[in-house]
Design a binder for these strands. Structure first.
Length: 692
RNA sequence: GCCAGUGUAGCUCAGUGGUAGAGCAACGGUUUUGUAAACCGUCGGUCGUCGGUUCAAUCCCGACCACUGGCUCCA
C-alpha cells in the first residue's frame, strides 16, 4: 500500500468561488449530479420535518454534498435517522427533477412568497437567501428552478433525471458555516452527506474512511510513541516530541543541513523572542498581531519607571483640565442666555485642543518606554535574520547570502484550528532567507525550486502542486504593502522562473504574503488529505523597512531582495504528513526503530553475540535495540512488528554457528539468513543513501 | 473565535442513579522457545474539571477545559 497514488486534487469549489458559468456547471460529473441532487432531496426532507427552514447553498463537494440552511430547529446527528427516512421516501417516490425556466420577476415573486427552497408558499417567511442569490445572477442569464415533488429550488442544475437515480446516500455531519463564507455574515447550519451511484460504492467509500482513520497521523503517532500532547501542563497545540519522534526530527534536520550546506547556505542561530520594535518594524505586528502570542511586559528600570510615573501624573492633570473645559463648554451650550461670548468659546476650545494634543504626546511617550520592555515570542524567523544581515556591512560580493536556521516559531492559532501535528502553536521551521540582487534572483529562486524537487524524490512524493499566490489591487495598503510597481516586478520575475523551469503550477490571486508573492507546495497524503508543506516567498518590502543595504559595484547602497523558503515547511506538519504517507512504515533511514536484534532464547553465547551485534550497529550510528528476554520468539517478533521496527535480526544457534543472522523486514517478512557482516554493511549503506 | 459531537486505567473499549470492569501494556514469577502474542499472579481509575439536582451522581442538569468533525483563519 505504500507509495500508493494519493488522491488527485479535488474539484472542490474555490474558497471564495467566483460565479460559475452555466458552461462550467454543465461539466458536472455524473457523481456530482447525484450528490447535488441528493442535496435537494435532503432539503425536501428537512422541510417536511421543519417547514420554516430557509436554504442557501447546496453544492456537491469533494466527498459528497452539503446544504446550508437557517432553521428554528437545531439539527443534530440524532435527527439523521428521521431525515434519512424522509429522504428515502423521496427517492422511492422517484420524482422527476423538472427544470423550469422563469423570468426574473417571477423568481423574485416566488422568493418573496417563500416558495423557493420550500414545499409550498410560506407567507411571512420569504426565501431570503434565494432573493440574495437572485441578485447575483447576471442580467441576461436564464433563471431556472428545479422541482422534485413539491420542492422547488432556485437552481441552475444540472441534476440526475429522477430522485430514484440516487443509488445510495448517507448523512455524515452537521457544522456551522457562515453565509457566503463571511465571518460577519449570518451563521447557518450546514448538513453534510455523501451519495453514490449504488450501495457498493457507498460501502467502499465508508471502508476507505475507516482505513483513513487507521492511517491518521495522530493515531499512528500515539501507537509509535512519536509525540504527545499534554494540554494540562504544556498547553494545547504544543507537541512534546518523544524520543522516537525526536529521531525522525533529527533525520530530517540532518537531511536539510547536508543539503543546504552543499547548496551554499550558512547556518545561524537566533533567540526565540524579540522586542516589540522588531515586529512593528517588520510589519508583522500591525498585520498579524492576533496570530502572535501576547507580549511579555518586563519590569522597567527604576529611572524608566520614574519617568513613566511622571508622564502619567502629567497625563492625569491634562485629563482633568480636559474634562473641566469640556464641562464648561457643555454648560454654556445648555444655557441659552449665556454671557459666554463666541470669542471666549473659541479660546476655550483651542485650549482644549492643545491639551488633547499634549495628552496624545504623553501617551505616545509612555508607550515608547513600555514597549521597549515588551517582548514577543517569534512567529517567524525573518526579522531576526534581517538583523543578522544588518549586523555586518555587506557588499555585493557577499551576495547571495543564504542564512539558514532551525528556528522554533510560535503562533497563536485559534483554538478551533489546532489539528494534531498539522496545525500547532510551536513549530520547528526548516527556514532560510536568501538575500540577493535582482540579477541573482532568478537563479536563486530556481535553485530553491530544485531543492524542493530533490526532497520530493527522496520521499517518493509523486503528486504535488505549486500554488503561486499573487496580490490583488484592492488589497494594496491593507493586506499587502503598498508598492504596486514592486509587486508587478517580482510577480513577473517569479512567473518567468516558474514557466522557464516547466514546473506545474497554478496562479491564485489575492493570496500573497503581505510582503510579496509566494509559492506554496501542496501535497496530498495517502488518505487524501491536502497539505501545504513547503513555502517559498519573495520579500521586496521588509528588508527596506529594516534599512538593509549592500554596497553595489557603483558604490551606492542598495536594498537586497529576500527569498523566504522552507522546503520542509514546519517539521511538525511535515512529519505528520510523512506518517500518513508511509502509514508509519518509514524507510530505514527515517524509521525511529531501525533495527532490533532478537535472540532465540537467552543462552549465554547467543546473548553475547546479540550484544556484540547491537554494539557494532550502534557504533555505526544505527538506531538499534536488542530483545534478549526469554519470551517465545513469536512474541518477540510480534512486539517488534507492532513497534514497526524496520529490520529484525534473529539470532539462533543455527545462525551463530554459520556466522549469520536471519533478516526479517517489517514491510517484507522473513528474508532468510545472511552473513552478519554483509547485513551490517547493507544496513549502514541503506541509511547513508536514504533509500526509499 | 463560531456550530455540533466526544471525554471511564498508559492503550482499546464494556458498564450502572446505590462511589467501576475486560483485554493489551507495566511489574513479579514459572516456561527455554526458529519468525505476529506461552502460563500464573500483582499493580493500576476522585469515571476531563468545577458547580447544581438528589438520601445517594461516573450516570441527570449547568458552566468551564481538552479533543474530534466542519466554518472562518493559516506571515
Amino acid at each position: 500500500m505504500e507509495n500508493q497514488d494519493p488522491t488527485p486534487p479535488a474539484a472542490a469549489p474555490a474558497p471564495n468561488p467566483e460565479r460559475k458559468t452555466l458552461d462550467d456547471r454543465a461539466k458536472m460529473t455524473e457523481l456530482e449530479r447525484i450528490r447535488h441532487s441528493c442535496a435537494h432531496v435532503l432539503a425536501t426532507a428537512i422541510l417536511r420535518l421543519w417547514p420554516d427552514a430557509q436554504f442557501a447553498y447546496g453544492p456537491p463537494v469533494e466527498n459528497g454534498f452539503y446544504y446550508d440552511l437557517e432553521c428554528s430547529h437545531r439539527i443534530s446527528p440524532e435527527d439523521f435517522a428521521k431525515l434519512e427516512e424522509e429522504m428515502k421516501k423521496e427517492i422511492k417516490a422517484n420524482n422527476v427533477f423538472e427544470k423550469l425556466t422563469v423570468t426574473r420577476e417571477q423568481a423574485i415573486a416566488d422568493a418573496q412568497s417563500g416558495r423557493l427552497g420550500g414545499l409550498a408558499e410560506r407567507p411571512g417567511n420569504a426565501s431570503k437567501f434565494k432573493l440574495d442569490l437572485l441578485k447575483n445572477i447576471p442580467e441576461g442569464e436564464p433563471i431556472s428552478y428545479f422541482k422534485n415533488g413539491d420542492f422547488i429550488d432556485l437552481c441552475a442544475g444540472p441534476h440526475v433525471m429522477r430522485t430514484g437515480n440516487i443509488g445510495a446516500f448517507k448523512l455524515t455531519t452537521v457544522a456551522a458555516a457562515y453565509y457566503k463564507g463571511d465571518e460577519k455574515g449570518p451563521q447557518l447550519q450546514r448538513i453534510y452527506g455523501t451519495a453514490f451511484k449504488n450501495k457498493t460504492a457507498l460501502e467502499e467509500w465508508l471502508k476507505l474512511q475507516e482505513e483513513a482513520k487507521r492511517r491518521d497521523h495522530r493515531k499512528i503517532g500515539a501507537e509509535m510513541n512519536l509525540f504527545a500532547f499534554d494540554a494540562d501542563f504544556t498547553g494545547p497545540g504544543l507537541p512534546l516530541w518523544l524520543p522516537k519522534g525526536g529521531a525522525i526530527l533529527e533525520e530530517l534536520e540532518k537531511l536539510a543541513k547536508e543539503t543546504e550546506f552543499q547548496a551554499g547556505y550558512v547556518r545561524v542561530k537566533t533567540p526565540h523572542l524579540a522586542r516589540e520594535k522588531m515586529y512593528t518594524t517588520s510589519g508583522h505586528l500591525p498585520y498579524y498581531a492576533e496570530s502572535m502570542f501576547p507580549p511579555m511586559q518586563m519590569k522597567l528600570e527604576p529611572e524608566q519607571e520614574t519617568r513613566v510615573l511622571n508622564l502619567q501624573r502629567r497625563l492625569e492633570v491634562v485629563h482633568e483640565a480636559n474634562s473641566t473645559i469640556e464641562q464648561v463648554i457643555a454648560d454654556q451650550r445648555r444655557k441659552k442666555n449665556s454671557n459666554f461670548s463666541s470669542e471666549n468659546l473659541e479660546q476655550v476650545q483651542s485650549e482644549l485642543g492643545s491639551y488633547k494634543s499634549e495628552a496624545s504626546t504623553l501617551n505616545a511617550d509612555i508607550e515608547t518606554l513600555l514597549s521597549g520592555n515588551r517582548y514577543y515570542l517569534k512567529a517567524m524567523n525573518c526579522p531576526h535574520h534581517h538583523r543578522i544581515f544588518a549586523a555586518e556591512p555587506r557588499s555585493y560580493r557577499d551576495l547571495p547570502l543564504r542564512l539558514a536556521e532551525y528556528g522554533t516559531c510560535y503562533r497563536y492559532e485559534q483554538s478551533g484550528e489546532l489539528f494534531g501535528l498539522m496545525r500547532v502553536r510551536s513549530m520547528n521551521m526548516n527556514d532560510a532567507h536568501i538575500y540577493c540582487t535582482p540579477e541573482q534572483f532568478a537563479d536563486e529562486f530556481r535553485a530553491v525550486n530544485e531543492m524542493y524537487l530533490k526532497y520530493f524524490k527522496i520521499f517518493g512524493l509523486g503528486k504535488y502542486q505549486m500554488r503561486f499566490s499573487t496580490s490583488a489591487p484592492e488589497g494594496l495598503g491593507k493586506k499587502y504593502v503598498n508598492e504596486p510597481e514592486l509587486w508587478k516586478q517580482t510577480e513577473d520575475m517569479v512567473r518567468k522562473v516558474l514557466v522557464e523551469s516547466g514546473i506545474n503550477f497554478v496562479e491564485v490571486a489575492n493570496e500573497a504574503a503581505f510582503y510579496g508573492p509566494k509559492i506554496d507546495v501542496q501535497v496530498w497524503s495517502a488518505i487524501g488529505r491536502e497539505f501545504t508543506i513547503a513555502t517559498n516567498q519573495v520579500d521586496f518590502a521588509v528588508p527596506a523597512k529594516f534599512g538593509l543595504t549592500y554596497r553595489d559595484r557603483d558604490n551606492t547602497d542598495k536594498t537586497p531582495l529576500c527569498i523566504h523558503r522552507a522546503p520542509l515547511g514546519t517539521h511538525e506538519r511535515f512529519i505528520g504528513f510523512l506518517i500518513e504517507h508511509y502509514a508509519g512504515n518509514f524507510p530505514l533511514w527515517l524509521a525511529p526503530d531501525q533495527v532490533r536484534v532478537i535472540t532465540l532464547g537467552d543462552d549465554a553465547p547467543l546473548l553475547a553475540a546479540g550484544k556484540a551485534l547491537v554494539h557494532e550497529l550502534r557504533q555505526n550510528f544505527v538506531r538499534v535495540t536488542g530483545d534478549f528476554t526469554n519470551e517465545p520468539i513469536k512474541a518477540k517478533i510480534a512486539n517488534a512488528e507492532h513497534a514497526r521496527v524496520h529490520t529484525m535480526l534473529v539470532l539462533g544457534p543455527r545462525d551463530l554457528e554459520a556466522g549469520n543472522v536471519s533478516v526479517r523486514l517489517h514491510t517484507g517478512g522473513p528474508q532468510g539468513a545472511k552473513p552478519t557482516a554483509q547485513v551490517v554493511a547493507d544496513i549502514v549503506q541503506s541509511i547513508k543513501e536514504r533509500r526509499a
